[in-house]
């Protein structure tokens, strides 16, 4: 505020920094605003408290619907179509059926490579979800499509990667391109991929002795 004067060495008139502080030292909790008062205050100030995501139904795209119908007509109740959106389909299945579904997706629907393999940790339901995002290079029509194939594996509170129940069949024989993605998933979530030829560490250091770091119970220091 009055830095110039201070630099010159003259005592300034408004050096009292504390003067900005509110005078009231009231700590009585009964003065809390009621809901109606708050709402009135928000309306006056123009603060919008409506939900962030307006829910308006979007039309289901036809081509994507036809693809997901092929999967459901083949596997019935074994698969669950989570959503069908423009260029995106998500299908979830049990880990026992994932190989069959993956072969069908490759051979009949002509998806030919994996874009990413993501793990998502759900400690509340004691599960880890593995999501394969599959894409297509060879088919002209399918080029813009991404099919998310998801499965859930049980999660152990005290993980011992490779030795506990967190395991699922590897899709490496179906989609060769998942090889490094699954290795990353194994070290970051401790999910063992059965049938993967090379379940070694990839990104983490060899002497990493903590739990798999992308699990929710691994906390970053200071956060």
């Amino acid at each position: 505020m009055t830095k110039k004067k201070e630099k010159d060495g003259e005592p300034s008139e408004t050096t009292d920094v504390l003067s900005d502080k509110p005078e009231s030292q009231d700590t009585d909790l009964s003065n809390t605003l009621t809901k109606d008062e708050l709402r009135k205050f928000y309306e006056e100030k123009g603060i919008d408290l409506s939900p962030d995501v307006p829910i308006h139904p979007k039309p289901i795209p036809e081509f994507e619907k036809s693809l997901s119908d092929k999967i459901t007509s083949k596997f019935g109740s074994k698969v669950n179509v989570d959503y069908v959106r423009p260029n995106r389909i998500r299908v979830s299945t049990k880990r026992e059926d994932i190989l069959d579904v993956a072969y069908f997706i490759r051979d009949e629907l002509r998806y030919d490579h994996a874009e990413s393999v993501a793990g998502v940790d759900y400690p509340d339901s004691k599960e880890i979800e593995i999501v394969y995002h599959l894409g297509c290079y060879t088919d002209e029509q399918n080029g813009s499509q991404i099919l998310a194939l998801a499965t859930r594996v049980p999660r152990e509170d005290i993980p011992s990667p490779g030795k506990d129940k967190s395991r699922t069949p590897s899709l490496r024989d179906v989609f060769y391109s998942v090889e490094f993605h699954e290795r990353e998933c194994f070290e970051m979530f401790g999910v063992y991929f059965e049938g993967h030829p090379d379940n070694r560490r990839l990104l983490l250091p060899e002497d990493w002795a903590d739990i798999p770091p992308f699990r929710k119970d691994f906390k970053i220091k200071g956060r």
């Binding site: 560490r201 990839l202 990104l203 983490l204 250091p205 770091p213 992308f214 691994f218 970053i220």
Partner: peptide, 12 residues
Amino acid sequence: DPGYVHRGEEKM
């Protein structure tokens, strides 16, 4: 053998 510049962006 990648991973020498792994910074955990996804975790951050």
